[in-house]
């Protein structure tokens, strides 16, 4: 296995985050190196062997610097995670052309902050990227279904809606209907994307007509709740969803004319992000795309909406690990 390294350098270092990364890296048998200055960072990078894999953590205060750093065309495999404090849409816009930036992590040290970092580092190290179960705590039941036609799409979204809305006591004013709506809208969008955007045969199909998918075109849906986080994943077997599309769709402003001018101008991905706390794309190039949405259910809608969002884009070339 190629040697993995983790580097950190921040505009505004938060030692709690640096220490968290260090402990997780060490527990994963990866060497963490904190670089307090850009000079030390650049010297460290200049000594890294070409067959290494480097995950560099930084923050949005250094986007311009990161952009210039990436022009060095390092021979080793280089991925960048940025911690962000402002709106994810504007950061996604700034980094959309920096191909090494694959992870935008909301600086929200919530209950799962350490776990999310540990998953990122483990997936980076092992290149084993697929599956919702990585994000749900032990004990969560993961429900799985396959979609081959319009009815199955409708039924699977309805099943998720009923599953969540059923948690509230009838006659009692509870937020679960609202969460059921949010999660079923997210699921619907993910499935639409997998059926119509990923599949070249159906890209320009009339979506109002019933569809039938072959075995190679079928879409896998998985979902589960671990008591804290609700996760849903949708998988297609085309493996073509690229990082630039994710960042561009997240960052773009939607205008009436754009939306009505073509299929939806990325409205679906924006709608997903609006209702999600973590949006994770896993791509095995030319084989599989899996998009996961993780949602925390808070009693207060206000708390739900204040939570920082994170976007992760993992990709591996299954013939040659990239």
């Amino acid at each position: 296995m190629k040697k993995s390294l983790i580097l950190t350098h921040f505009f505004e270092p938060e030692w709690a985050i640096v220490n968290k990364i260090n402990t997780i890296a060490k527990s994963s048998s990866i060497t963490p190196i904190h670089c307090p200055t850009t000079e030390i960072l650049e010297e460290t990078l200049s000594k890294i062997q070409s067959d290494s894999r480097v995950l560099f953590f930084s923050d949005e205060g250094l986007i311009s610097y990161v952009q210039s750093l990436c022009k060095n065309n390092y021979e080793f495999h280089f991925e960048i995670a940025l911690f962000i404090d402002t709106k994810i849409e504007s950061v996604a816009n700034s980094v959309s052309e920096i191909e090494q930036v694959k992870y935008l992590i909301g600086k929200d040290q919530n209950e799962s902050f350490g776990r999310d970092l540990a998953i990122l580092i483990k997936k980076f190290k092992n290149s084993d990227i697929l599956d919702l179960e990585k994000y749900l705590s032990f004990g969560a039941d993961v429900h799985r279904t396959k979609i081959y036609n319009s009815k199955q799409k409708h039924d699977s979204v309805a099943e998720i809606f009923d599953f969540i809305s059923g948690w509230g006591d009838p006659g009692y004013s509870h937020p679960y209907d609202d969460y059921a709506r949010k999660v079923s809208e997210v699921t619907d969008e993910l499935i639409l994307n997998a059926i119509f955007n990923a599949n070249p045969r159906l890209k320009s199909a009339d979506r109002s007509l019933e569809f039938i998918l072959s075995e190679a075109e079928c879409v896998d849906v998985a979902w589960g709740f671990d008591g804290e986080v609700f996760g849903v994943s949708v998988k297609d077997y085309f493996g073509k969803f690229n990082r630039e599309t994710v960042m561009q769709y997240i960052s773009a402003q939607r205008h009436f004319d754009d939306v009505t001018g073509n299929s939806s101008a990325g409205l679906g991905l924006k709608l997903i992000l609006e209702r999600t706390h973590n949006l994770i794309t896993n791509v095995e190039v030319e084989r599989t795309t899996e998009v996961l949405a993780l949602v925390r259910f808070d009693a207060r809608n206000r708390k739900f909406e204040k939570r920082k969002k994170s976007v992760y884009y993992f990709s591996v070339n299954t013939k040659k690990i990239s």
């Binding site: 619907d188 639409l192 939306v259 009505t260 939806s264």
Partner: peptide
């Protein structure tokens, strides 16, 4: 309306236009 997806919203906006 219980919920909406992007395709439905696009159809609605075309109608409003």
């Amino acid at each position: 309306i219980q919920r909406a997806n992007s395709t439905g919203i696009v159809t609605w906006l075309r109608f409003v236009k």
